[in-house]
Design a protein around this nucleic acid. Structure first.
Length: 483
RNA sequence: GGACGGGUAGCUCAGUCGGUAGAGCAGUUGGCUUUUAACCAAUUGGUCCUGGGUUCGAGUCCCAGCCCGUCCA
């Protein structure tokens, strides 16, 4: 049947409900239970009121079985023509899969052992005018899954699980930090100078002020101002925006946790992150072995989060991939080695970028169990303290899990003169803008501090086994749909 | 930007060598008072992504384009 015919049938049922004196878009309905919990903690012979969307309908003539569900689960309901009377039965006949209804009834267990609510009365809460996706396969078309996420949530159990887990994990991270005395703050998303990272910003304009503004690419420089102001443990967990490519691992708006801890250093921050992620895994993933599965349910990758996590200097990892003599080669020699190893480098790259390319292709992308990469070249990280024993590297970690960087952590640079110098002498293709107000703040004195960023979307991907960032972001950015 | 894969009913998908456009689900009608991917019988439903081309004949082959996905840059 064509779509228009399907819609017509539902409109006719809508009209019929009104003829029967039923408001198809009812209001308040008090419930005693939610479907999933009622089913999980089932007791017989109780009078209950539950509400949900009809997701399955088994018509046996005078007896009707149907499932009502919401995000958290479903419960079977039973309706008998004789028991509810002709009028209610006639109303029920106008209902379809997709409609929201409230049920008052008594609980019992069927011959087949299914916990069920025997309806005494039904209340129509919302008539659905469109057919739902395939009841067994759900929606698979990525266009529909992302543009009409509600259909994905209604019809795909896995999608419901992932987004519930995400919400619970984010709440748990907030609680984890709050328990340790960190205060959550909100700093500007509209910034005059987009700082704290090297990335293309989105530009916008404030009419009343007559000035261009940028959506933030990171909250870092504002959180550090708060350290200057006396916040000693502070975090922000919210959106950043980067005007760059979209891919399996990139959405233009993404969620970042940043936390700063005065008087700490990057190693304490590594401990903190390690503990936080492990506690998430133990609470929500049943332990420290994270299994990623394909559509057939076969395990395709197992990530072992057992502690302690490896901590290895950057140069050791690069040497392991590029050869023991890698750092004794001339810069030209390193480029030749890259060619031998199949690592593509462009002629414009600085030497440290060539090295970084080896790191990204041969180390990062192949590291799945957690590894804190330490002693990173200072050129890559302009906002971190230099190592006291080796001025060429900074006191930071970059945490790699699942082949991607999940979290950086720094001993934050708090020397205003060195900070200015480092920002003004950045090299390479990715440079940060200089925020003079931030440098001014540093001149008033920022306590030494450890800082971290945690890419929440990638962390959720790692913990849930999602293949694409679009599977952990409710409404990922898509091209405008042309009509 | 390049390579590869995909686009067929509301949804999930088949479609052989180029020869009348198919199934399951959903819908409709009938049957059935404890079913559960309910079942049984019947039935409706198509811009085969778009535009060209080859051909007696194109969902299928060729060309161009659009959209989606993955990988690469």
């Amino acid at each position: 049947m064509s779509e228009s015919q399907l819609l017509k049938v539902r409109r006719e049922k809508l009209d019929k409900l009104r003829e029967l004196g039923v408001n198809p878009y009812g209001g308040k309905f008090e419930t005693t239970h939610v479907p999933g919990v009622l089913r999980a903690n089932f007791e017989e012979e109780k009078t209950v009121r539950v509400a949900g969307r009809i997701v399955a309908l088994r018509d046996m003539g005078k007896s009707q079985f149907f499932d009502i569900a919401d995000l958290d689960g479903k419960i079977q309901c039973f309706l008998n023509q004789k028991a509810v009377g002709e009028e209610t039965f006639e109303v029920f006949k106008q209902l379809d899969i997709g409609d929201w209804i409230g049920i008052e009834g008594e609980t019992f267990i069927t011959r087949m052992g299914e916990p069920t609510v025997k309806a005494v009365s039904i209340t129509v809460l919302s008539k659905s005018l469109r057919p739902l996706p395939d009841k067994w396969h759900g929606v698979t078309d990525p266009q529909i899954r992302y543009r009409q996420r509600y259909l994905d949530l209604i019809s795909n159990e896995r999608s419901r699980e992932v987004f519930k887990l995400r919400s619970q994990m984010v709440a748990a991270m907030r609680a984890f930090l709050q328990e340790r005395g960190f205060l959550e703050v909100e700093t500007p998303m509209l910034q005059d100078v987009p700082g704290g990272a090297a990335a293309q910003p989105f530009q916008t304009h404030h009419n009343a002020l007559g000035m261009d503004l940028y959506l933030r690419i990171a909250p870092e420089l504002f959180l550090k101002r708060l350290l200057v102001g006396g916040f000693t443990k502070v975090f922000e967990l919210n959106r950043n925006f980067r005007n760059e490519g979209i891919s399996r691992r990139h959405n233009p708006e993404f969620t970042m946790l940043e936390a700063y801890w005065a008087y700490a250093d990057f190693e304490q921050m590594a401990d903190l992150v390690e503990e936080m992620i492990c506690s998430l895994a133990e609470t929500f993933c049943g332990g420290l072995l994270i299994e990623h599965k394909n559509e057939e349910g076969e395990v395709t990758r197992t990530i072992n989060l057992s502690r302690p996590w490896k901590r290895t200097p950057y140069v050791d990892l690069v040497r392991g991939a590029g050869g023991d003599d890698f750092f004794y080669l001339t810069p030209e020699g390193r480029r030749e080695r890259c060619a031998e190893l199949g690592v593509e480098v462009s002629p414009e790259m600085e030497d440290y970028e060539v090295v970084q390319q080896v790191f990204e292709k041969l180390v990062e992308e192949k590291t799945f169990d957690p590894c804190f990469v330490t002693h990173v070249p200072k050129e890559l990280v302009p906002l971190a303290k230099q190592n006291p024993d080796n001025e060429a590297v900074v006191d930071v970690y970059e945490l790699i899990i699942n082949g991607v960087e999940i979290s950086p952590g720094y001993s934050e640079l708090n020397d205003p003169l060195v900070q200015r110098e480092r920002l003004e002498h950045q090299a390479g293709e990715e440079t940060q803008k200089i925020d003079e107000d931030f440098l001014l703040a540093l001149e008033y004195g920022m306590p030494p501090a450890g800082g971290i960023g945690v890419g929440i979307d990638r962390l959720i991907m790692m913990l849930t086994g999602a293949e694409s960032i679009r599977d952990v972001v409710l409404f990922p950015q898509l091209r405008r749909k042309e009509e």
